[in-house]
């Protein structure tokens, strides 16, 4: 298992390197002119040249990638141009190892930008995750147990409604009624978890519910299908033939088998969300990674785009490894090697 984990981690790192090359080529080698955004609307051609040089965009893409990779390993300094650093030592920015680049749009390193926004996105993702897993599994199992009856149809029907409406619509609806008109929860704002856990949670509630509703719909249907499928298994018949009470047959034997595919799916879904929920953050004006990525794309802030893409990729890769390792823990038949 340990050797397997090491091998998976090495493979993950290789995959990240490949991804960084691909993202670099996709954005940097495109016909866009990121220096124009950095320079501003009243930029003269001469200024444009200077900016391009200062940002290092004059060099071949592979060289730029090399600098990025070197910076990630051993840190680097910005601006990229050595002569410029000589001329303006007061403007030099130190970027320690792990460096993902420097955003000229924000005049900050990508790392510090992400570090500011990440807790917001992670909080949102985790609270939403808890809600959608708890709700999804509970309602999914209930629907399965009442298959074909009113409760089943109601749950499945409502989940379809939640699934069909766009996120922003549900978000705005909740915002308008739950927060503004009925005042059940305060207007969603982000508080630091360490400062005030209660405020953190209540501030996150609405956006988390919005996000959870969409995912929950899928999980209800999946859980329902998994439970119904498991209940036709021979070992469930064996469990009943042993004389086990229904709650043990369902709550232990059936759920245990249903858990495995759910863990896989939910791990990957959570990883995808950690990198920001673009629409939800937008609707509730949360300043997370999702909003950051929109800004980065609008401004064509290449280092920021690459940084966020790689971060997201890393989340998904790590989640994948964790899920696979967990799989071996959950399912004794799976032997890693």
């Amino acid at each position: 298992m340990f050797a397997y984990a090491v091998r998976r981690i090495i493979a993950g790192i290789l995959l990240l390197i490949v991804m960084s090359v691909v993202t670099f080529y996709l954005f940097y080698a495109s016909s866009s002119t990121p220096e124009r955004f950095a320079c501003g609307p009243k930029c003269t051609p001469a200024q444009l040249e200077v900016t391009k040089k200062a940002l290092g965009y004059d060099e071949p893409t592979i060289v730029q990638w090399g600098k990025f990779a070197k910076g990630f390993v051993s840190g680097r300094e910005f601006p990229d141009d050595a002569a410029l650093r000589e001329a303006h030592p007061e403007q030099v920015v130190e970027c320690p190892p792990g460096c993902l680049g420097y955003s000229y749009g924000y005049s900050k390193t990508v790392n510090s930008l992400i570090k500011d926004k990440l807790p917001i996105s992670i909080s949102l993702a985790i609270v939403a995750f808890v809600i959608w897993i708890a709700g999804g599994v509970l309602l999914g199992v209930t629907a399965a147990l009442f298959k074909g009856r009113f409760l089943d149809r109601a749950i499945v029907g409502l989940s379809l409604v939640a699934f069909a409406f766009p996120t922003f619509f549900i978000g705005l609806l909740l915002l308008k009624f739950v927060a503004i008109r009925w005042g059940i929860v305060p207007l969603p704002t982000y508080h630091d978890l360490t400062d005030n856990p209660a405020a953190w949670l209540s501030g996150l509630m609405l956006p988390a519910i919005t996000l959870a509703l969409v995912y929950m719909a899928g999980y209800i249907r999946m859980t329902r299908a998994f439970v119904l499928e498991t209940m036709t298994e021979d070992y469930i018949r064996t469990a009943r033939a042993k004389g086990l009470p229904r709650r043990v047959v369902v709550g232990k034997h059936t759920l245990r088998a249903t858990l495995t595919p759910l863990v896989t799916l939910s791990g990957l879904d959570l990883a995808g969300l950690l990198g920001g929920a673009i629409i939800t953050e937008r609707v509730f004006n949360f300043n997370g990674v999702g909003k950051l990525s929109i800004t980065a794309i609008q401004r064509f802030d290449l280092p920021l785009i690459v940084g966020i893409v790689l971060l997201l990729a890393a989340f998904v890769i790590v989640a994948n490894i964790i899920v696979d390792l967990l799989y071996a823990v959950i399912d004794p038949r799976v032997r890693l090697g």
Binding site: T238, K242, A257, D331
Partner: peptide, 28 residues
């Protein structure tokens, strides 16, 4: 009733199934 029936199953009447691989729970 189901509850009395349940107490009968496994205690008074037991069943051995055809395919023991699928009839035994793989996770226990």
């Amino acid at each position: 009733e189901e509850n009395d029936l349940r107490k009968l199953r496994g205690r008074d009447v037991a069943m051995i199934f055809q395919d023991p691989l699928s009839a035994l729970h793989p996770y226990y």
